[in-house]
Design a protein around this nucleic acid. Structure first.
Lengths: 181, 181
DNA sequence: ATTTACTTTCTGAAATTATTGAAAGTTAAT
DNA sequence: ATTAACTTTCAATAATTTCAGAAAGTAAAT
């Protein structure tokens, strides 16, 4: 079974974008392919569909598993491994987001915290520390905020999203009601 | 004037991270360097501080300008160009975010919209379209939501951030008050 | 118009990253 | 124990990206 033109275009597009999301072209293609394919696929089917080597598929699978984006399935009486997306689109996006946070924000936070422990010994250092402090705060806010969002129930989240620009009003509303502090 | 050990470590770290944010190592380093350096720097100073070629700096400047992350300044009676960050940390993060959205979300949205116009002609295509539809919705939500956030005043934004997990309660509260619909 | 002080562009070399395909590994069936 | 049907690993190669340094460009000062 081969891909329709449109579906193929989508898979290739995932390849181009893939590199921006932290994996390489092939892995992006694999991910896109598995997402739009109804039935789980074998490694060989993937290799054929994308015209890449079997070995390359094996690497890609390992990588996609490390991102927890795909899962393995077995069909009784069949020794092959079948691969499928590990969850709904929303879950997958969340995983990518989480993984990226871990890879790019956390190391920076660690380094910044370490740097900020030192006393600045002159004006230049003081300025550098001020700037690093700002980055640190920004990253902490982003981290905290994103984990808060993930704590919401899907229902709350949905409401929040629908709220859209109304969010501003709700904040003001909350202020009026609890204006004591 | 050369960098302290800690500051140098920060700049190098920006190099490593840089590639994840869409530019390359050198450009990440340049960006970090300009952020923690109090005074605007000339291209030659940058080249010296990072031990890279003058030509490479020139490329990097062009790229950073295309991201609107740095600005050029002139000192009267001096022909050199001096480079400095284009704004506060928060602004720069916003620019990077915006630019990434433009580069990776918008093209995908375009492709998906195009693909979703077609009628599915069989079961496989129908499934593929369903999945693409989900991705499309997710990306639209993210896009919409992020531009809502940018529309908030810094003050509102600050309150929202401080709210943290309390956001859930506020949503529920709002629901109770306007429970008519 | 020339020189001088700069910036930009471009080419090929170097470094990095991705990919193949063959060999090795694994495991179920016989 | 051997074979058959798979998967994984890895060394060699291919493709891509980054970079230095030279050459070309620009424009202020003389």
């Amino acid at each position: 079974m081969s891909l329709s033109e449109k579906n193929f275009a989508f898979v290739m597009h995932c390849g181009e974008m893939g590199s921006r999301w932290g994996f390489n072209r092939t892995i992006g293609q694999m991910c896109g392919l598995l997402i739009i394919t109804k039935n789980p696929m074998t490694a060989n089917e993937i290799a054929d569909a994308l015209s890449i080597s079997r070995g390359n598929v094996s690497m890609g699978i390992k990588e996609l598993q490390s991102w927890q984006l795909i899962k393995v399935q077995h069909i009784p009486g069949d020794r092959k491994e079948y691969y499928a997306p590990a969850g709904e689109i929303w879950d997958m996006a969340n995983r990518v987001f989480e993984e990226r946070k871990k890879r790019e924000i956390e190391p920076t936070l660690t380094l910044l915290r370490d740097n900020l422990l030192d006393e600045a010994s002159n004006d230049d250092e003081l300025y550098a520390q001020k700037q690093m402090g700002e980055i640190h705060n920004l990253l902490e806010t982003v981290t905290k905020w994103s984990s808060e969002l993930q704590r919401l129930t899907p229902e709350q989240l949905n409401k929040l999203m629908k709220l859209g620009s109304g969010i501003g009003k709700v904040i003001d509303l909350k202020d009026k009601i609890f204006k004591k502090e």
